[in-house]
Design a protein around this nucleic acid. Sequence first.
DNA 1: CCTTTCCCTTAAGAATGTTTTAAGGTTTTA
DNA 2: TAAAACCTTAAAACATTCTTAAGGGAAAGG
Lengths: 230, 230
Amino acid sequence: MAQPTILLVDDEKEIIDLLEIYLKNEGYRLLRAGNGIEALSVLQKEDVDLIVLDIMMPKMDGIEACLKIREQKHMPIIMLSAKSQDMDKILGLSTGADDYVTKPFNPLELVARIKSQLRRYTRLNVQRPNKENELEIDELTINTATHEVKLDGRDIKLTPREFAILELLARHRGTVWSIEKIYEAVWKEAYFDSDNTVMVHIRKIREKIEENPRKPKFIKTVWGVGYKVE
Amino acid sequence: MAQPTILLVDDEKEIIDLLEIYLKNEGYRLLRAGNGIEALSVLQKEDVDLIVLDIMMPKMDGIEACLKIREQKHMPIIMLSAKSQDMDKILGLSTGADDYVTKPFNPLELVARIKSQLRRYTRLNVQRPNKENELEIDELTINTATHEVKLDGRDIKLTPREFAILELLARHRGTVWSIEKIYEAVWKEAYFDSDNTVMVHIRKIREKIEENPRKPKFIKTVWGVGYKVE
DNA sequence: CCTTTCCCTTAAGAATGTTTTAAGGTTTTA
DNA sequence: TAAAACCTTAAAACATTCTTAAGGGAAAGG
C-alpha cells in the first residue's frame, strides 16, 4: 500500500475540507462523497483502503451505509458522530464499524485512528484483494461477482449455500463466526438450536477446498466459539 | 485510575524537580525523561496516563516526539514552551497536543490543567470501553472479537472457560477477584464452596501464558483474597 | 409433465476436546 | 509447628464438533 486511499463521507463540506488538510499531509490519496449512495458508487469504481463515515447524512443514514459497505467489501470503517448516544447504537447494533470518533474531535486523533486501522488491516490481510470482487486467501480465489472459486488455478464447484458461507468467512478474515451467526447471515432466518446443517456445509466446503479436511488450512474451527478464516 | 502516572519530559532538571514537588503532593506517580527518545522508551515499559512535554529538547524535538507518541498511544499531552511563537505552531496545525502552557508558568496552573485533562480523558475512555476489542498486558494481547490470545506474537490457544476468566481479570486490571466472584461472573450460576474448579482453570491458563506457572507474571495470587492481573 | 440430477437437511454414532472431581502435595501464616 | 490456604495432577464425566449416509425437495433436462 504505497499511498493508501481514504474515502471521506460527510455532508458537511467544512469537515471534509479540514480533514483533507491533515490527511493529505500524511500522504494519503483522498476521495469524497456527500452521502451514503455516493459513497457506494465511488466504491464500485475505486480501490479504497479505508472509509471515514459520518453517521448523520441525508439520503442514506450512515449506519445503513456502513452495513451495505460491509456486505460488499472488507475494509476499515471509522464512524463520526455528533452524539455520543449514536455511538451506543453503533456498538449495540454491531454495524461492523471498526472504530469511531465523536464530534467535536481532534483531527490528529482521527489521523492516529486511521493509521492504527490501516496497520491492523494490512496485518490481518497480508494479501489484499487485488481486483474488485475478488477475495484471495493464499492460493484460494473467491470471485463474488461470478461465484467462482479457484484453488491453485483449478476450478472448485461450490453450491450456493457453500459459497455464501465461504464468502462470509473470507470477507471478515480473522473474526470468528458462531454457527448461529453464520446461519442467520446466510439463511436470513432465525436459528434453532440442535441443527447441524451449518456444520455439514462446513464439512462439504472443507472436502472441496482443503487438502486434508481434518487439518483445515482455510476454515479453522475455534472451539466453543465458531469458525473463521485467518 | 487510583494513582495516575504522569511522565515529565524536559531537558532542564530544575523544571522537573519543581514540578515533582507539586505533583507528588497531588498524589500522582511520576516518571521522568530527559528527551523524546527516552520518553518513547519509557512509554514502552510503563503505563502512563498523561505526558508533560517540553518543546525545546535536545536529540528529538518536542513536536516530533509528540507526533510519535500520538502514533503509538492515546493519552493527554500537555506541551511546555518558552516562546509564544512555538505555541502558534502547536495550535496551528499540528501535533495533537491537548493543551499547552508557556514558560515561565505558575506550577499551580499546570496542576489544574493536568487535572482537567485527566478528567476529560477518563470520560472519553468510559464511552469507548474496548477500542478495537483488544486488551493488552505487556506482551500479552487478548482479542475479544476473534478470541485470540497472543504472547509475543505467538498464538496461545485457550478454551472458552479459560478465555472467559482471563478476559475478566484483564478487563479489570488491578482489582482482585475472589474465586466466588470469578465463578459467578464466568459460569453465571451460584458458587458452592469446596470446589476447586476455578483454581484448576487458573492453573491451566498459567501453564499456557506464564513462563513459570509457579512464579506467575500475569495472573497473581492475592493471598486470602483471590486473583488479579496487575 | 415426468424424470433425473443436484442440493439441502436430518439424524445417529464416532472422534475429539473440555470441564470437573478428587486426592495428595506445597506454601504461607500465625 | 500446626492449620489454613493454595497448587498440582490425572482420570472420569461431560460437551462439542465431525462424519457419514439416507431421504426429501427443488431445479434442470428431456
